[in-house]
């Protein structure tokens, strides 16, 4: 099946089997190695991507579902200016993330910051809970997301 979609701002297409997992397509065909494949059933959340600015788990998406959508992985997001806010926020909160979950945490934060720079407690917990990893405690992640939101708001106000 031929699919075409936008990946990190660029129009791409590929001839793939429709029932391949998105993780497989994005890693093997488009070399997005920031996607971690750990559980294949949305338990860990390490394979998060943004589809039309919404966070979704790539392991729960079949390849044909990518058709005509706008997909962002952390490879694309990290090229943008706003990524530094996320890094600064996590640094400030002393988050000792592991390599597995860190990209997904950054993407989840990015998705939230696009929604609101003054997130509610519910939004914060929801964002922190969308990635399940044992490396860092949830309160620490919430602190980190709050710091990232503050950094982003400060930068935008400075402009």
């Amino acid at each position: 099946m031929n699919i075409s979609f936008q990946l990190n701002g660029k129009q791409v297409q590929a001839d793939i089997m429709p029932h391949l997992r998105c993780t497989e397509v994005l890693r093997e065909t488009f070399h997005c190695f920031s996607l971690r494949c750990r559980c294949d059933n949305s338990d860990c959340g390490s394979c998060m991507i943004l589809v039309d600015k919404n966070p979704v788990y790539a392991c729960l998406m079949a390849a044909f579902e990518l058709q005509n959508h706008e997909v962002w992985t952390i490879e694309g997001i990290s090229e943008q200016d706003g990524f530094h806010d996320i890094v600064a926020g996590f640094h400030r909160a002393n988050a000792q993330l592991c390599i597995h979950c860190a990209p997904a945490r950054a993407l989840a934060t990015q998705a939230l910051l696009e929604q609101s720079l003054n997130p509610t407690w519910k939004q914060l917990t929801d964002t922190a809970m969308s990635v399940n990893c044992g490396c860092t405690s949830l309160p620490c992640i919430i602190r980190a997301i709050t710091c990232a939101a503050r950094e982003r708001a400060r930068r935008q106000n400075a402009k």
């Binding site: 952390i74 990290s78 890094v87 390599i99 860190a102 990209p103």
Partner: peptide, 8 residues
């Protein structure tokens, strides 16, 4: 940290 968060 930035390498981890960016997936590099």
């Amino acid at each position: 940290l930035s390498d981890k968060l960016s997936g590099r």
